[in-house]
Structure formats: C-alpha cells, structure tokens
C-alpha cells in the first residue's frame, strides 16, 4: 500500500539562509544541505525547496542548493518559487530536482502546464495552488497570495490536472503559519475532485492536525516547515503517531 508522505519544506532566500532556522539556531544559517541531510536521515519521504526571494540572486541560491543536495541525498526533490518558463523548469531539473512546482505562471499562462508536462512528463510538474477563502468557496491566488485570480480553486485544480499537472501542492492562505490546523474542508474538496496526489500545506500546529489532513482531508502527503524547523516536532515522532492511528507510513 502506498504510504502517506511527510515532506519537509525548506525556504531559500538570498545567501542560502533558511527562514525560521535562525531563530532557534538548530543549524548554522547558510547550510541548507546539512538540514536536508538531517531530514533525510530522520526519514523524510521527499524534500521541497522554495525560492521565497524570487530574485535573480535567490534563484541562483536555490539552484545551488538543489544541486548540492541532489548529490548527497537519494530521495525525490521538488523545487519551486517564481518559476516562469520552460527554461526555468529545465534549469531546476538539470540541477537535480525531480519535480518543479508552478503557481503564478500557470495562472497567467495555463498552457505552460501542458507544454511542461509534454516536455518533462507529468510526474515532474507540480501545480501549486495558493487557495484563499472567498465567500462560500476558495479562489486560487497569485503572486504569493496577493492577487485573486478569480478562479475557483477546485476548478483550477481540475483544469491544471487536465493540462498535465502530476500533483497538486495545496496551500491554504488563511491557515498558513497560524498553526490552527489545515483547512480540512478545502483539502477534502480538492482531493475529491482530482485524480492526482494532493499535498496539504499551511496550518499544521500539532500531530492531530497532520492526522486530520490525511484522515478527513484525504491528503496524500503533508508539507511541513516551521513545525520541523523550530524543532517542535520531528519526523520519527510524526510517523510513529500516524502509525499508531493506523496511517500507513514508511
């Protein structure tokens, strides 16, 4: 049986600093490779790197990190943040990423998803949806959650999969960083609508939240950042808990 994946997410900015890490000094700032290595040894099922600077410098940093990490770690790597074109995707895949996540550029030009999946295979194209509550439903937002695309998140998810996205990284803008738990209704809605794996992101505050994302939200994987970076939870602890609740983990 396929297991639920636990995916640490590392934010990359200029100068290879990992946000969140500095506060607790868990790992020397500027050494993302060490952090990635630690998560790998703890049993991470995959790693995601996001360029949060989305500048020329931060992109170079991201590429450098992916390149280094891919040489020492043999689990799937996903990279994203500010990806705009086929050549951006190619560059990240060449650097050693197995998947590339696309958010704003896909909303601006949905055909990019088709072109990218034809060129590199659906398995390497992750549609990242930043979903925010609007009225009774959710819309897909662009530019780091600042601009409402006007599209219903569920419609966009279905369209994205039709165009070739092989996975959906679903972030709840309303819950992100709040630790109030994942938006289970949102997760469930999208999960039920698409035939590809859905990765839950945004809002995890405790072990129960992670379990609920899988149990109620029907997520195929969970993305975790601050909870892991701040050392509040670690991967073995999460996996043991999930196992005790009957969730299949590795």
């Amino acid at each position: 049986m396929l297991v639920t994946r636990i995916i640490p997410c590392l934010d990359v900015d200029e100068g290879s600093v990992f946000k969140g890490i500095r506060f607790k000094n868990l790992i020397a700032a500027g050494d993302p490779v060490k952090l990635a290595q630690r998560y790998y040894e703890e049993g991470a099922d995959e790693l995601t790197f996001l360029d949060i600077g989305a500048s020329w410098k931060s992109r170079k940093t991201l590429i450098g990190v992916v390149e280094k990490v891919s040489r020492v770690i043999s689990i799937p790597l996903c990279a994203g943040g500010g990806v705009k074109s086929l050549s951006d995707i190619k560059e990240l895949l060449r650097a050693g990423a197995d998947k590339v996540s696309i958010c704003t550029a896909a909303l601006e030009n949905p055909l990019l998803l088709r072109e990218a999946s034809l060129a590199f295979g659906s398995q390497s194209i992750v549609l990242s949806i930043d979903a925010g509550r609007v009225g009774q439903g959710w819309h897909a937002f662009m530019k780091g959650g600042r601009i409402d695309s006007g599209l219903e998140a569920a419609d966009w998810a279905r369209k994205g999969v039709e165009l070739g996205a092989g996975e959906i990284l679903l972030t709840s803008i309303d819950r992100d960083g709040t630790k109030e738990g994942y938006d289970l209704e949102l997760l469930r809605t999208i999960s039920d609508k698409v035939s590809v794996p859905v990765i839950a992101s945004g809002g995890a505050g405790c072990l129960e939240d992670i379990y609920e994302a899988i149990n109620t939200g029907k997520a195929d994987a969970v993305l975790l950042a601050s909870l892991l970076h701040f050392g509040e939870l670690n991967i073995p602890e999460i996996k043991n808990y999930l196992k005790s609740k009957g969730v299949k983990v590795r």
């Binding site: 297991v3 590809v196 794996p197 195929d220």
Partner: peptide, 11 residues
C-alpha cells in the same frame, strides 16, 4: 487505481 500516476513510496 483512483490516483494515477502512482506517486510515492510503496512496498
């Protein structure tokens, strides 16, 4: 299966 591609860790 319901979700295709089969993506992830399996036995």
């Amino acid at each position: 299966s319901v979700k295709v591609p089969h993506t992830g860790w399996n036995e």
